[in-house]
C-alpha cells in the first residue's frame, strides 16, 4: 500500500497507526467482513445442528420453530426406530463396502494407467488417450439408461459388481496421476533401469512412494464422490437390501415418516463424509483447487 511512498511523507500519526496495526477504516471493514462471514457460517452449519438436535429429540413428528437446540431429554429412540423399521444398517454396510472397494480400485488403476501414459511408449497410446478424453466429456446422466440396459442384459442389476464396476477406474484419476508421474524427473527411472529394475519395479518401488500424497488426495475425492453418488446406485438397485445409504435414505425421505426418524437418517448419512472431511480437508481443498486450475 503506502510502502510505495517515500518514508518521509508519513505523518507520526500514520506511523503510530501502522505500528499498533489499527486503522479506523480497516477496522470497520474487518467488522463487516466478520459479520457477513458469521451470518453465512450460521446459515451453513445451522441446518446440520438442527438436524442433530431433532434426531435426539423424543416423539417429534414435525420440525417446528422455535425449537430447543438441546433436547430434553436426550434420546436415541429415533436411531433405534430407524434401525428397526428400515434397512439402514444394511445400507450403511453396503455404502462402506462399495465406497472402500471403489476407492482402492480406482486409485490403484489410476496409478497404473497414469504411469503407462506418462512413461510408456506403446502402440495405441495416443488413440487410447484421446478415447479417455472423449469419455471424460460424456455427461454421465446421458449414459444411465444404456448402462442399466447393459447390466440388466448381463443379470447384474442388484449386484455389488454393478455398484462398483464403473468406479473401478477413473479418468480424472488417470490424468491426475499422469501429471504426478510427469512431475518426477526421468532420472529416477533411468537410475532404476541401470540397477536392473524392470518397469514394474520402477513403478512400485521407485516412483509410487513419492506419490503417496497425490494418491491420498485422489482416494479421498473418490471416496466422497462414490459415497455421495445418487442416480447411478438408484437405477442399478431395485431390491431394498442392495441399496446404498443415500439411496435408502432417499426412500425414507419419500415415505413421509416423522421428523425425528428423518433426522436420525440424515445424521447417519452425514457422519461418515463429515469425519472424512475433518480428517482430510487439506487434501480435499488441494484436490479441488488442482482440478479448477487445470481447467
Amino acid at each position: 500500500m503506502s510502502s510505495l511512498r517515500p518514508q518521509t511523507q508519513r505523518s507520526p500519526l500514520t506511523l503510530l497507526r501502522v505500528w499498533i496495526g489499527f486503522q479506523p477504516n480497516q477496522g470497520l471493514r474487518t467488522a463487516v467482513t466478520y459479520l457477513l462471514m458469521g451470518v453465512l457460517a450460521v446459515s451453513t452449519v445451522g441446518p446440520f445442528i438442527i438436524m442433530l438436535s431433532v434426531s435426539l429429540t423424543q416423539n417429534i413428528r414435525f420440525l417446528l420453530f422455535p425449537i430447543d437446540l438441546i433436547p430434553n431429554p436426550i434420546t436415541l429412540e429415533n436411531f433405534q426406530l430407524l434401525f428397526a423399521r428400515t434397512l439402514a444398517l444394511r445400507w450403511t454396510y453396503n455404502s462402506f463396502y462399495v465406497a472402500a472397494v471403489s476407492t482402492l480400485g480406482g486409485v490403484f488403476t489410476s496409478t497404473m494407467a497414469g504411469y503407462a501414459f506418462a512413461r510408456g511408449d506403446f502402440i495405441g497410446r495416443n488413440v487410447l488417450f484421446y478415447m479417455f478424453v472423449g469419455i471424460l466429456i460424456m455427461p454421465e446422466t446421458a449414459l444411465i439408461i444404456p448402462q442399466y440396459i447393459m447390466l440388466s442384459d448381463l443379470g447384474l442389476v442388484n449386484s455389488y459388481t454393478a455398484l462398483i464396476g464403473p468406479w473401478f477406474a477413473s479418468i480424472f484419476g488417470t490424468f491426475l496421476m499422469r501429471q504426478q508421474f510427469l512431475s518426477i524427473p526421468r532420472d529416477y527411472d533411468d537410475a532404476a533401469l541401470i540397477d536392473g529394475a524392470n518397469i514394474f519395479d520402477t513403478w512400485l518401488r521407485v516412483l509410487m512412494p513419492q506419490l503417496v500424497p497425490a494418491m491420498v488426495t485422489l482416494g479421498i475425492l473418490r471416496f466422497m464422490g462414490n459415497w455421495n453418488s445418487f442416480l447411478y446406485p438408484l437405477i442399478v438397485t431395485t431390491k431394498a437390501e442392495m441399496r446404498t445409504l443415500p439411496v435408502g435414505l432417499g426412500t425414507v425421505a419419500r415415505s413421509g415418516g416423522d421428523a425425528g426418524l428423518d433426522m436420525a437418517g440424515a445424521v447417519l448419512g452425514f457422519v461418515p463424509t463429515f469425519v472424512v472431511f475433518l480428517l482430510g480437508q487439506r487434501y480435499i481443498i488441494q484436490g479441488v483447487s488442482l482440478s479448477g486450475l487445470k481447467g
Binding site: L40, P47, N228, F230, A253, D262, F274
Partner: peptide
Amino acid sequence: FRSVYFLPNVTNIAVLALVFRRF
C-alpha cells in the same frame, strides 16, 4: 470459515433433502 462453507458440498443430497424437506 472456508472449511465451514465447504461442508454442505461434501454432504450427500439425500441427507440435505431429508433436512430441507422439513425446513
